[in-house]
Design a protein around this nucleic acid. Structure first.
Lengths: 234, 234
DNA sequence: ACACAAACGAGAGCACTGCTCTTGCATTGC
DNA sequence: GCAATGCAAGAGCAGTGCTCTCGTTTGTGT
């Protein structure tokens, strides 16, 4: 009954697992998920390709691990921005969190593609990824929640046919807020990530040049959509 | 100097090229771009794999052809909805075009992933795709332009630091409209496609159930963002 | 302390991929 | 009619994910 279940063997196991993940992450960041080859990882790690399967039963399992890491990395970034802006007016915090998310996406385009791009075909994200994936969304929701607490939130009503759905959403996402904010939060979350995705995936080439200014202006609009009064609107 | 440059040979060539594209499109629609194998296409077409390279110099070139087709198919759908709603109030037309785009995306998820998902790594969309890609955007812009003509458009001002960029964008996109609408159009375009992407890629699983109602409500918000008064807001 | 079982690494091998090269046949233009 | 060109087929190369087998190492129960 040692603290580590099986001693030295297990130690090596988690070390090697980490090394594989690290090397895989490096290659992912440089070349993207489709170029990620188990054999190449094994090669630079000096092990036989078949040995990798002792640690990850398939390529998809490795990818899943990387997906969770990416979600967590992004979520952490958003949460850090949230924390750093504590006490600031809601509009300012909104901007801070959004820009943090965008910054992470631009710095890690392949990771962003892995989690928000087209899903690898035939690959269904296992439930393990859900909590990690939710972190970004909850960081955004926290801004809204705080704004509600300080009276900085204008809740727009929801059409009648959406009311039951709004109530259902709110139960899971924002049980302490008026249900009408739930659909707005989800919509803005999707639109924000979609907007960032367009930039990361090069859809703005030859269309938007001043990306920073454009983004700031656009997320101010998104802030209004959730009911926040943006910080620096002229 | 015949109308067809070389007679029967050329006829066969364009026929075979079309057959390859058609079979590839079928496989793309069923399994997605990553599963699309030249060899498999050749096999079901009863030809040697090497023969395909007479028609498409590489897999990427085949994909490019499919990308253009997908853009055109989507653009056509949007334009059809635009035309079908001619004369209706701008808010109604907006809804019609947006729902047409969403409908196409849900019916052709793999094609949608091909054009709006993560770009195939190492693959830079050639300039050939640009005009086809622009059609959807211009369909949306047409609604806005028409609303402006009939006085149904409220143009929100743009912050000072975005004014030059707005002017530059407007020159290419909406030379006949006030420059301030250009960034709004682009932003809404990106957000709409991003929203649809989230739904297509399964990001709404266990979060949004009543997708139709949610979408209608959300695009009404987008309409307001561009300055339209949505048709059916309660 | 010893034996047994589980975990492990390496290698060979299968089926598949994109792509190239060579060879031989058919069609075309002169 | 003949040379030139377009084309299809096959073999082959380098690479992939993944499986199976075969010794070896490691941990554990008696």
């Amino acid at each position: 009954m040692t603290s580590t279940p099986h001693g030295a063997r297990a130690r090596a196991r988690i070390e090697i697992t980490a090394a594989i993940k690290e090397e895989a992450r490096r290659r992912l960041a440089e070349q993207g998920a489709a170029e990620l080859s188990l054999r190449a990882v094994a090669r630079t790690l000096g092990m036989a390709s078949s040995a990798i399967y002792r640690y990850f039963p398939s390529r998809d399992d490795l990818l899943t691990a990387l997906i969770i890491d990416a979600y967590d990395s992004l979520g952490e970034t958003a949460e850090a921005a949230l924390k750093a802006s504590e006490g600031a007016p809601a509009g300012t915090r909104w901007t801070a969190v959004c820009e943090a998310i965008r910054g992470w996406a631009l710095a890690h385009p392949h990771e962003y593609a892995l989690i928000y791009g087209s899903p690898v075909p035939g690959y269904a994200a296992p439930a393990t990824t859900v909590p990690a994936a939710a972190r970004v969304g909850f960081a955004l929701i926290d801004v809204v929640r705080d704004a509600h607490r300080t009276g900085e939130l204008d809740v727009a009503p929801v059409p009648a046919d959406l009311e039951p759905e709004a109530a259902r959403m709110a139960e899971d996402l924002v049980p302490d807020l008026p249900p009408a904010v739930a659909p707005a939060c989800v919509a803005v979350w999707a639109q924000l990530l979609g907007l960032i995705g367009f930039e990361v995936f090069g859809q703005f080439t030859r269309i938007v040049e001043e990306r920073d200014a454009f983004f700031r202006h656009t997320i101010a609009g998104l802030a209004r959509t959730v009911g926040l009064r943006p910080a620096d609107t002229l």
